[in-house]
């Protein structure tokens, strides 16, 4: 899939109304080859360069990220894995502008995230990033449809109706739009959250354990959608998970341990991920023995 180049160019040029034009959307979907000739094959949607992050101070200091450098390609579905405390959530938070880095730089599209103030960060999250949380985090006072268009409403703009319609259709939410979150199942709620994340066509969607609170069937639906959004819409997705089955849906898995990237695996399968995890556990156990 190579719509990534277009994403890149969309980020590079100043946003104009035409970008949200439905016809333009169609062009964007269908004319990938044209765009891909204009620039190199894989461009970078999100990048971290030499990122350090520590919590606390003195004796109690915990270093969550140690000199992490990683790039996430546009139009790719990347999973971040690692045991508890490996720093995978911290990495995602730093990448998404939710947390600050101690050292190093984070870049999203053409924007340097590092060093931005709260206002600029907020605007960046609003305009360029989509979020999917483990706990769905829908607003109970809003209907499903209102939740989906929430980011646009916050921005004071109107979401592209054709685009939103298309996502809603893909997620099979058409007849659930007027329901309040409390009237929806967990899977439906998470699908609404997915639609919300994609509605503004962000440069990147960060998903934090999106299937953690779902049964297997609902989880599969959500993962299938994420895959589809990458394949069909050229969406960039970075997903934090500890579930090898979920990771298998990604194009690539980045393994984190003790605040460092220890493995970068392309085209993962559930089995290869499980093997790798076992391998890490052995390594960790060996290291612990050595330390003892």
């Amino acid at each position: 899939m190579h719509h990534t180049d277009h994403q890149r160019s969309a980020g590079a040029v100043p946003r104009n109304p035409e970008h949200r034009n439905p016809r333009h959307t169609d062009t964007f979907i269908e004319s990938e080859s044209v765009v891909s000739t204009a620039s190199p094959v894989k461009t970078t949607a999100v990048a971290a360069q030499g990122v350090w992050k520590a919590y606390g101070s003195g004796e109690a200091q915990v270093v969550a990220l140690r000199d992490v450098s990683v790039e996430f390609a546009s139009g790719a579905f990347t999973a971040i894995m690692g045991p508890s405390g490996s720093g995978k959530s911290t990495l995602m938070h730093c990448l998404a502008g939710l947390d600050t880095t101690d050292r190093g730089t984070v870049i999203i599209g053409d924007s340097t995230v590092t060093g931005l103030g709260d206002k600029a960060l907020t605007k960046l999250r609003r305009d360029k990033i989509g979020f999917i949380f483990q706990q769905f985090n829908l607003l109970p006072t809003l209907t499903a449809e209102e939740n989906i268009t929430l980011p646009a409403a916050i921005a004071g703009t109107k979401a592209d109706p054709d685009w939103v319609k298309r996502i809603i259709h893909t997620l099979d939410l058409t007849d659930r739009l007027s329901h309040k979150p409390t009237e929806l199942s967990g899977g439906q709620q998470q699908r609404v959250a997915c639609a919300r994340a994609l509605a503004t066509r962000p440069d990147v969607v960060f998903a934090d354990e999106p299937t953690g609170n779902l049964d297997t069937r609902s989880g599969t639906e959500v993962l299938n959608f994420l895959r589809t959004s990458v394949d069909d819409f050229g969406q960039t997705i970075v997903m934090v998970t500890h579930d090898p089955t979920a990771a298998a849906y990604a194009d690539r898995v980045v393994f984190l341990a003790d605040g460092q990237i220890v493995e970068d695996m392309a085209d993962p399968t559930a089995d290869s991920v499980i093997d790798k995890m076992k391998h890490f556990e052995e390594l960790v156990a060996a290291a612990q023995e050595e330390a003892a």
């Binding site: 709260d118 605007k123 999250r125 305009d127 979020f131 985090n137 929430l150 916050i154 919300r196």
Partner: peptide, 13 residues
Amino acid sequence: RELGMLRAIGMTR
């Protein structure tokens, strides 16, 4: 949690 989510997805202070 709601406020955190709203702030995360781009609601300003």
